[in-house]
């Protein structure tokens, strides 16, 4: 599903943020990426969404070589990849439903489809009765659920979660992780970037550890390596 061949990325010509990273993720996998802050995890996510470009190497998502993608093609890549973040990136002046509908509107979906998709993704994340609320009227965990619902509107094959539990208490965090597992069980490939050792250790899934722009370990059913 995701094949990364020897990519490097420099913001500053002297220090690579990503240094010859190679990585293969199979369809339907649930992968955690861990590592200290500043080791290039977010940069890796941004490269997968086409927000940043690599300076060398090749990245293949699905059938696309995204390092060769033109500016006009990037939106289509992004519809194949759902992304969620630590800050939920919801619009405060729109209800949860409107936030989700907005994502469909700006991708030229018809009102009829929007009417069908919004409730269905809300029910996947368990917010069917809270769609009319504004983000500041629900908990952080619920906001993140809404963000997940929004990331699902195009039925992406990949879901990238960059520290999705960073702003949540452990109960809400666990619920979000359970939701990610549920989505993974539907067949979506999930890439989870996290700091949370407890979560990683309990998942018993593949764990990739990064340090200073390199992958220092990659284990099936791995654990969070303490440094």
């Amino acid at each position: 599903m995701i094949k990364i061949f020897d990519i490097s990325k420099y913001y500053n010509p002297k220090f690579p943020v990503l240094d010859n990273v190679s990585l293969h993720i199979r369809p339907g996998e649930f992968v955690s990426i861990v590592g200290q802050s500043g080791t290039g995890k977010t940069t890796l996510v941004k490269i997968l969404t086409g927000e940043e470009r690599v300076d060398s190497g090749k990245v293949i998502v699905g059938e696309w070589d995204i390092t060769k993608l033109s500016r006009n093609q990037i939106p289509y890549l992004r519809r194949q990849i759902g992304v969620i973040f630590q800050d939920f990136k919801l619009l405060p002046k729109k209800t949860l439903s409107e936030n989700i509908a907005f994502a469909l509107q700006v991708c030229s979906q018809s009102p009829a489809k929007i009417k069908k998709i919004v409730p269905s993704v809300l029910s996947i994340v368990g917010l069917e009765d809270k769609g009319h609320r504004y983000p500041n009227e629900v908990s952080g965990g619920e906001q993140q659920r809404a963000a997940i619902a929004r990331s699902l509107v195009h039925q992406p094959k990949i879901l990238l979660a960059d520290e999705p539990t960073g702003n949540l208490d452990s109960i809400n965090a666990n619920e979000i992780i359970e939701l990610l597992q549920k989505i993974n069980n539907f067949g979506t490939t999930v890439v989870l970037v996290t700091h949370n050792r407890e979560i990683v250790n309990r998942l018993r899934k593949r764990v990739i550890t990064m340090d200073e722009g390199r992958i220092i370990s990659d284990q099936e059913q791995g654990k969070y390596i303490i440094r």
């Binding site: 969404t49 939106p75 992004r78 992304v83 994502a103 991708c107 929004r150 990331s151 195009h154």
Partner: peptide
């Protein structure tokens, strides 16, 4: 957000 969700 538009960018994120793949708005053209």
């Amino acid at each position: 957000i538009m960018r994120l969700v793949g708005a053209s």
